[in-house]
């Protein structure tokens, strides 16, 4: 790890100011992605702005009418076991339960994951499918306008996610095929039938530009929300990743398999 200056701001305003004042500064929430990247010298921030002191302010899970609002510093383990979330959006709680491993889930946060937008992260698929709103220290961003590409989001310099608001769907399901070694998603598919009846199918882990919608699957499920409706639907390998773990055709095949399983989970 290269040397950095450490900051532990006590307020959002202070955190944002420290970040803006230092050109190569980075926020750290749980650090479960950033610290490994720094240890590998893939990330080299001049200043690390640790948000740990904001945890009390930025964590918690509460239902607000037809949505569930989750504080950005809420940890995966807390999300996975939240009674409020298990009752309202069990597919999202189930997703949190299979992020990393138990110790990683004790540190890693929902806001950190969404700010990082790793192309193999889980939450982006849920956010895009459910139509989540990313709430920051200065505005609200719809998921449709938030994910801009690999590790790229609509967040501006110094902008901090404070909470994520999740509309409660009629039903939803998530299935992922994990890389056997890293346990990251080689392909993860989230399916949702929203409260207004709109169907979304989103794919993480597979796209060369990060999370994306599988619109052919959405069309088929809009007509008939069942795994059988996806029998003849295939994903195109175009735009999917090829790497040492799997080529694009294999990933395209997995998109179909995971989509059918996710629908089965949603309709079980």
């Amino acid at each position: 790890m290269y040397a950095f200056n450490y900051h532990r701001p006590a307020s959002l305003a202070e955190a944002s100011a420290v970040l803006v004042a230092n050109a190569d500064a980075k926020f750290m929430a749980g650090g479960q992605t950033l610290l490994p990247a720094m240890k590998l010298r893939l990330a080299n921030p001049s200043d690390l702005v640790d948000l740990v002191a904001l945890r009390a302010e930025l964590s918690g899970i509460r239902r607000e009418g037809d949505r569930v609002v989750i504080g950005a510093m809420t940890r995966h383990g807390e999300i996975a076991t939240s009674d409020v979330l298990l009752a309202a959006i069990p597919a999202l709680a189930g997703m949190a339960a299979i992020v990393g491993d138990p110790a990683v889930r004790s540190r890693g946060t929902m806001g950190g994951s969404l700010a990082n937008n790793d192309p193999a992260a889980d939450y982006p698929a849920a956010a895009l499918a459910l139509g989540a709103t990313i709430v920051t220290d200065r505005r609200e961003i719809a998921a449709d306008h938030y994910f801009l590409g690999l590790f790229e989001t609509a967040l501006e310099e110094g902008e901090i996610i404070t909470a994520i608001a999740w509309p409660i769907p009629k039903r939803a399901g998530y299935e992922k095929f994990r890389n056997p070694a890293s346990r990251y998603a080689m392909v993860g598919v989230f399916v949702a039938e929203r409260a207004d009846g709109a169907v979304r199918v989103t794919v993480t882990g597979a796209g060369a530009s990060g999370v994306f919608r599988a619109t052919d699957f959405e069309t088929a499920l809009t007509a008939d929300f069942s795994s059988a409706a996806l029998a003849g639907v295939a994903a195109s390998p175009e735009g999917l990743n090829t790497d040492i773990h799997a080529d694009a055709e294999y990933r395209a095949h997995l998109v179909g398999v995971m989509a059918r399983r996710a629908v089965a989970a949603a309709t079980a």
Partner: peptide, 28 residues
Amino acid sequence: DTSQCGACVVHADGRAIKSCTSLALSCD
């Protein structure tokens, strides 16, 4: 040293964490 193996697990405020993937300063 890459948060895979768990040989470094300790409890911080009662929860198991990987101490190779946490700064000492974050545990102040």
